[in-house]
Computed example of a mutant assay.
Amino acid sequence: MARARSGTKPPLLDPIRLDDLTDADGSELFSGADVEARRFTDCDFEGRDLTGVAFRECEFHTVSLNDAKLRGATLSECVAGELHAAIFSAPRSAWRDVRIEHSRLGSVELYESSLRSVQFDGSKLDFVNLRNAQLHDVLLSNCIIEELDLGSATVQRLELQNCRIGTLDVTRATLKDVDLRGSDFSVIRGLEGLRGATIDDAQLSLLAPIMAAHLGIIVE
């Protein structure tokens, strides 16, 4: 069903076109490597030190990144499907024009990272740590997320579309054009941080008890 018009601006996602990719097994990957136009299929990078690696115009399919060290990594014009990692550690990384689909990630460490024109679709994520991150033009669609932590993050044009979120933490977040309509939440922390978000009538009714408790209002 088409969503009613509103003044909330949707994310602007650039199309990703990948041509002339070379199949690779990851043997050339190392800390600080610059990797371009590669296709990784059925690769296991568990525990690998990939600190500061740069992936440009790359495709990943059925890749394990459990406990790989991706601190400070750069991902640009990349597409990934069926990623697996109980621990996905990429703090202070930079993402631009990235799409991740049908993946299963546990603890996702993306604090102090920059995400621009990024989409997660049809994925199951446990704990997503985006504290102090910069998000511009991000779409989360058809995802199940146990906890989404946007504490102290700066967020512009984020849309959560048909998602189920256990806990949303927006403590001290700065939000602009953040569309939460059509998604379900069990707990929201840091209600003041919701300023700048758009919700629907059903979500407002669910938030009413949380808001009342936050303000010390007794409802009888």
Rank of each mutant, 00 (worst) to 15 (best):
Ser114Asn: 10
Ala33Thr: 07
Ser27Phe: 08
Ile144Arg: 14
Glu192His: 11
Asp97Met: 09
Ser64Cys: 13
Val118Leu: 04
Leu158Ala: 01
Thr74Ser: 10
Phe60Trp: 04
Ser113Gly: 06
Ile217Ser: 05
Glu46Leu: 09
Ala212His: 12
Glu146Ser: 14
Lys9Asp: 10
Leu204Thr: 07
His84Val: 12
Thr41Asn: 09
Leu110Tyr: 01
Gln156Cys: 09
Leu139Val: 08
His136Lys: 14
Ala85Leu: 08
Gly166Glu: 01
Leu168Ile: 04
Leu21Cys: 07
Ala33Pro: 06
Gly106Pro: 05
Ser141Arg: 12
Ala94Phe: 15
Glu77Pro: 00
Asn162Tyr: 06
Gly193Phe: 03
Gly81Tyr: 07
Cys58Ala: 06
Leu215Phe: 09
Ala173Ser: 05
Leu13Lys: 02
Glu101Gly: 06
Thr41Asp: 10
His136Trp: 08
Leu75Tyr: 09
Cys58Pro: 03
Ala2Phe: 13
Gly151Val: 04
Asn142Gly: 03
Ile217Pro: 15
Leu13Thr: 03
Cys163Asp: 01
Val187Ser: 11
Ser186Asn: 11
Leu12His: 11
Arg172Glu: 08
Gln161Cys: 12
Ala86Glu: 14
Phe30Ala: 15
Glu192Thr: 09
Gln119Asp: 05
Asp42Pro: 09
Arg172Thr: 06
Leu160Arg: 04
Leu29Asn: 06
Thr8Tyr: 11
Ala85Lys: 12
Asp149Lys: 02
Tyr111His: 14
Gly72Lys: 02
Gly52Val: 04
Ala85Gln: 10
Gly52Pro: 05
Ala37Asp: 13
Phe55Thr: 05
Arg39Gln: 13
Arg131Gln: 06
Asp97Ser: 15
Gln119Lys: 09
Asp97Cys: 10
Arg3Ala: 13
Asp126Asn: 12
Pro15Met: 07
Asn162Ser: 14
Ile218Lys: 14
Ser27Gln: 11
Gly72Gln: 04
Lys176Cys: 13
Asp19Ser: 15
Ser183Leu: 02
Ala68Arg: 05
Ser114Glu: 11
Arg172Pro: 00
Ser117Arg: 06
Asp137Phe: 04
Val53Asp: 03
Gly190Gln: 03
Gln203Asp: 11
Met211Gly: 11
Gln134Cys: 08
Arg5Met: 14
Asp23Thr: 14
His214Ile: 08
Pro11Ser: 05
Gln156Lys: 10
Ile188Trp: 00
Leu206Ala: 12
Leu21Phe: 08
